[in-house]
Design a protein around this nucleic acid. Structure first.
Lengths: 248, 248
DNA sequence: GGCACTCTTTGATTTGGGTCAAGGTTTTGC
DNA sequence: GCAAAACCTTGACCCAAATCAAAGAGTGCC
């Protein structure tokens, strides 16, 4: 498969990401006008909290640039990442008043937000917006369930290979690489964040990355810059049947 | 909390479960008429497959009675349950042609099905149906993410306690028990099914159940009939912050 | 009643990944 | 340019849960 195959939807959007991810294709001028009037941008620095679990969340948003994570924690501090938000991903729940998990910026982050109440009003008046959101939510649910398989049944090595495959697939910069099967990208996560996503410890993540490097499945320059010489070989380590869904 | 608190929505529905779970409150006569005309019932025996992952799925459905499970498997046979369907739960995805996982009956099962195409048509014409489905899907997503925390970060004992707490909460028969905090119910799953749900082996499940019994946190009569003398004590073993969401 | 089957329990042993500890490397801030 | 902090790697050791093995319990069928 070529890198182009991996990006059926352009990740760039001149105006606002929600246009193509959630609504644009079927929106008329009036609806776009409403969206314009209720939107605002917020930026966050790497490490900053966007919202705490349980806090009031009076907006929905999509990621313009940068990476955000959704995490849940037990009282004793064990934490599990339950979602990774890359540019163009949507977050927020019409009909929910409080955030169900922590959202934090792992890199510098720009979000395009819409005030929740008027967004909900628009959604109730505009069936195709609710339908598009339903589709997106079903996709997220599929991803979450794919992730349950990973957390419950994959080995540490398979977990790492799966994560690298997902990031490679979604990272826009892989497009720059022309050689068939070869992919180059930067890991957007620290070892600790990867561990939280994969249900491992950071030491195990580090060891598995070293092992994949030692065996030539990945090449590593610095701590974050990764080259995958043969994407199919990486997928093979991930333990999935063929390439699978693994959207976000 | 009293057993009644656990069942804010009546699990019984004279006509069809989807009425109260998905649409009924806001449906008019004409919409209910359409639903009537496209619905049919299917029953399955314990152990029977409802649908295989990847097969064409031309219906959506809700569970009338019995238990069904959603599972995903790796080629080498490792399997992970990704959802448990109890009476009144909905399954199926408008806009998706193929089933993304195996659905199977773990007990005798009755489902109320709606042919997909006309259901989708109705949904497109009827905004509140799409909106209700969106709400339900968001709830499912929250449950899936709660489960990710369990799979990634909880110990075997905490996993078992969490599962027992969920089943106790959802099982209708707990209503029959009056004593505050005391709950009696039947496990609807084999040890192996529990293991697949929890990302454990069946031996570990068995050992943990024995341990909980030995310590008086549960009482066990036969293999399936469980008494929880003190529900709060069970929750305490589950490791959650207070009682949490843990819907299904 | 007894055989066959499925489900469950329990024990012995192994092992993958966690924990603890030390040191290396990169980034940030002054 | 140096110190501190953050992040990462590697090693030694340990333990929770997996694996392997055997036997008990319940159920249905002839």
């Amino acid at each position: 498969m070529t890198p182009e195959d991996l990006h059926p939807v352009s990740p760039s959007c001149a105006d606002c990401p929600i246009r193509h991810r959630a609504v644009c294709a079927r929106c008329d001028e009036r609806e776009l006008g409403v969206l314009e009037s209720i939107k605002y941008y917020r930026s966050f620095e790497a490490g900053q909290m966007v919202i705490w679990s349980g806090d009031k969340m009076d907006f929905v948003a999509s990621v313009v640039s940068g990476i955000a994570t959704l995490t849940q924690t037990l009282e004793d501090g064990r934490t599990q990442m339950v979602g990774l938000l890359l540019p163009s991903d949507f977050v927020g729940r019409p009909g929910r008043e409080f955030a169900p998990y922590n959202i934090s910026a792992t890199t510098d982050l720009m979000m395009c937000c819409f005030r929740k109440k008027p967004f909900e009003d628009l959604m109730f008046r505009t069936p195709h917006i609710a339908q598009r959101l339903l589709e997106m939510t079903l996709d997220e649910l599929d991803s979450a369930r794919e992730w349950m398989l990973l957390l419950g049944r994959k080995t540490a090595r398979e977990k790492l290979a799966s994560l690298l495959a997902i990031v490679a697939r979604r990272d826009a910069s892989v497009k720059l690489c022309a050689t068939r099967g070869r992919m180059i990208f930067d890991l957007p996560l620290t070892r600790e964040a990867m561990a939280d996503y994969l249900g491992l410890t950071l030491e195990t993540v580090s060891r598995q990355i070293s092992a994949l490097k030692r065996e030539g499945i990945i090449e590593l320059e610095g701590k974050r810059h990764i080259t995958v010489p043969d994407f199919d070989r990486l997928l093979n380590e991930a333990g999935d049947d063929s390439d699978g869904g693994m959207l976000s």
